[in-house]
Structure formats: structure tokens, C-alpha cells
Design a protein around this nucleic acid. Structure first.
Length: 212
DNA sequence: ATCCCGAGGG
DNA sequence: CCCTCTGGAT
């Protein structure tokens, strides 16, 4: 089976397994999703969902976070790790959204990645989930690991992986590719001990990346 | 390539 | 102890 056929087959089977993927992060608007996604770097979504209610209680909108006391913000986001970077980046991002984008979260990749702490992965998540705009595919730790193991890419650099994945799927599916691979990665094919014996993709998996 | 960095699992 | 968690900047 060639790469494109395998990619389509993976998508079809995962779509059957996850017919209506529920979002893992809790959010009610684009700004909340942006904040939650920044906090999710090297951190479980479960922990992010415990922090964001406290954060949005104290700083309910973009304008208030732009004026936040950084030390207080650090305390609130501390348990998500990288807390100094995250606090500094979030306040600066809020400041820039207010000053440059009229208080509205920008809706393009080019504008989103001008915000500190926001690169392609975070921008793709916000664009596809909050705005239904698909400029690319969000490549996080799960998408990276699964794409390599399933032979959809020979690269390890997230930007190259994204460029390898994009031509394999119709643009309308770019958003759900992330969801499917994240959930499947968690439940069946985690980094450390993949459940190959009970995996429904076993027959089409080259297994060329397991253990790496 | 290296640093940022806490929390939970094995 | 070591590894991993929906990364990004230098």
C-alpha cells in the first residue's frame, strides 16, 4: 500500500472510532482556546483544564490579561510547567492583541505567529477549532509520533511533517486529523508502550518508529 | 542543540 | 530513578 492510500485508510478507520471528537481543552471563545493551547505545551490537557478556570476568573478577557501582574499570573499557571515563559508570553500576547489587532484574536497564520509563544502548532489549533480556518495541520507530540510510526513521514521536524501530511488529506479534514491522532495516540499508541496486539491499525502499520 | 520546568506514571 | 505530557525561542 502506498503512503497516500495508507493515510486515507488510517483516517477512515479513526473516523469510525471517533465519530464526534470532543475537544480535550475547555474553552468558550478563541482567546480562551489560545491561552489553553499555550499552557498545554509539555503538559497534560487535564492539568490545563484545572488552571484555566482560575485564570479566566481573575482575568476574564484579553484586556484584563494585558494588564496582569506577571508574578500573580506565574503563580496561577505554575503547575503547567515552563511557568515563567508562559506567564510572560501570555501577557505580551494579550498586550499585542489589544494594541495591534483591536482586541480581536487574529484569524490568519501570519498574524497569529507574531504573538509571543504562538507558533504553527498553536496557531493551527486556534484557526481550525475556533474559526474553522484550515491553513495547515497542527503537529504536536502525538501527531509527530504517530505520523512517523505509521510511515506517513520520514521526517522528525514538525514543520516538515506538516508539509508531508498536508497533501495526503483534503483540506476540510486537516482539523480532525489532529483530533484523531491525538486521541488514538493517547488510547492505543502512546510514546512508551503502544498496544500493538489490540490495535485496529496493526495490519497497515509499518512499525518503523516504535521505540524511537 | 539547548533551555525552559512542574506533575504524574512506571 | 527515568520518561512523558496536544511547544516555542534562542
Amino acid at each position: 500500500m502506498n503512503t497516500k492510500d495508507r493515510a486515507r485508510e488510517i483516517h477512515a478507520r479513526l473516523k469510525g472510532r471517533y465519530p464526534a471528537p470532543a475537544p480535550a481543552l475547555d474553552w468558550t471563545n478563541a482567546w480562551e482556546l489560545l491561552v489553553a493551547t499555550v499552557l498545554a505545551a509539555q503538559c497534560t490537557d487535564e492539568r490545563v483544564n484545572k488552571v484555566t478556570p482560575v485564570l479566566f476568573e481573575r482575568w476574564p478577557d484579553i484586556a484584563s490579561l494585558a494588564e496582569a501582574d506577571v508574578a500573580q499570573l506565574e503563580t496561577v499557571v505554575r503547575s503547567t510547567g515552563f511557568f515563567r515563559n508562559k506567564a510572560k508570553n501570555l501577557k505580551a500576547a494579550a498586550r499585542r492583541v489589544v494594541d495591534v489587532y483591536g482586541g480581536e484574536v487574529p484569524r490568519t497564520m501570519a498574524d497569529l505567529i507574531t504573538l509571543g509563544g504562538v507558533a504553527r502548532k498553536t496557531a493551527n489549533i486556534v484557526l481550525s477549532n475556533a474559526f474553522n480556518v484550515h491553513e495547515g495541520i497542527a503537529v504536536d507530540t502525538h501527531v509527530k509520533r504517530l505520523s512517523f510510526r505509521m510511515g506517513l513521514t520520514a521526517n522528525t521536524d514538525p514543520v516538515r511533517i506538516e508539509k508531508d501530511l498536508m497533501p495526503l488529506y483534503p483540506r476540510a479534514a486537516w482539523g480532525e486529523i489532529n483530533h484523531f491522532l491525538v486521541y488514538f495516540g493517547r488510547e492505543v499508541c502512546p510514546a512508551r508502550t503502544p498496544k500493538c496486539a489490540s490495535c485496529e491499525l496493526n495490519d497497515i502499520c509499518p512499525k518503523n518508529g516504535v521505540g524511537k
